[in-house]
Design a protein around this nucleic acid. Structure first.
Length: 270
DNA sequence: CGTTACCTGAAA
DNA sequence: TTTCAGGTAACG
């Protein structure tokens, strides 16, 4: 479910509740979501540690804990991390419960169970190969243009490659390409300088606006306080197949690129 | 490079 | 019944 704006929103909504507080104990209801170690090791190494800070890298959340330990989460499609004050109703599909002081809890819920919880040593290899953060000041149009020129494959597939750029997913890749007026089927290396700069600016502005609106909710996504995001009303092409382009009126098309649905306006995106 | 597997549920 | 879903990794 979550791409960079949703994960960043979860980070921001969890931090005020969790930073400085202690994970008193861990209850694992479904061992599958704890990756790369036994349940006993996972709960043993986390129990009793306080949360120092919560960070984000691409679509990963990183909880830095006392003693140099870290809890790392990837929500994949349907994962949720929700802060649950004492006596709150249970969250459907809860897989792991972290008990805090005072009977408050942090819940990991995940309908499809594709997401996972990790410690530093068990983090998946992709974590260490993430590309630049698109909202970081150091990520310049110059660097982006150079990197694109050296890539084979279609621009849509390249934008989804987390080694190329960390945090874009299917929704925002389509929205950024629309904002830049670039067809998703174009070869990445065929973009000229002006198009690269337009796409760089589009990625920045779309992601910043989406973070400001607290992400996009279709069905599953909620933030760390259980609230939905409101970027769905700002979407121009994603899941609007057959509807009129808001800019020119042409019907939005959908086709499969690199195994994912891509939505675009055949008139505005060349 | 594209395809498949991993999971479950909703919608067509 | 089939297809589709916000993601990634492991195939061939």
């Amino acid at each position: 479910m979550p791409e960079l704006p949703e994960v960043e929103t979860v980070r921001r909504t969890l931090a005020p509740h969790l930073v400085g507080r202690c994970l008193r104990s861990v209850e694992i209801l479904d061992p599958k979501v704890v990756r790369g170690m036994t349940e006993a090791e996972f709960s043993g190494r986390l129990s009793g540690r306080a949360v120092r800070s919560i960070g984000r890298r691409g679509k990963y959340l990183v909880f830095d804990l006392d003693g140099g330990e870290a809890l790392i989460a990837h929500l994949r499609m349907t994962g949720r991390l929700v802060y649950l004050p004492a006596r709150s109703p249970a969250v459907p599909y809860t897989r792991v419960l972290f008990r805090l002081d005072g009977d408050d809890r942090l819940v990991y819920a995940d309908l499809r169970r594709l997401g996972g919880l990790y410690l530093r040593e068990s983090v998946p290899p992709g974590f260490h190969r993430l590309g630049p953060e698109p909202l970081a000041a150091e990520w310049t149009a110059e660097e982006f243009c150079r990197a694109l020129a050296g890539r084979r494959g279609k621009i849509k597939a390249v934008l989804l490659d987390q080694r190329f750029l960390a945090g874009l997913g299917n929704i925002y890749a389509d929205e950024c390409l629309f904002a830049a007026g670039i067809n998703p089927e174009r070869a990445a290396s065929s973009l000229d300088r002006e198009e690269c700069r337009a796409l760089h600016a589009a990625i920045r502005s779309v992601l910043e606006r989406a973070v400001g609106l607290r992400g996009t909710t279709f069905s599953d996504y909620v933030d760390g306080e259980g609230r939905t995001g409101s970027y769905a009303g700002a979407l121009n092409v994603y899941r609007r197949t057959g509807e009129a382009c808001l800019r020119c009126g042409t019907a939005i098309q959908r086709r499969r690129i690199g195994g994912r649905s891509s939505h675009y306006c055949p008139c505005c995106q060349r």
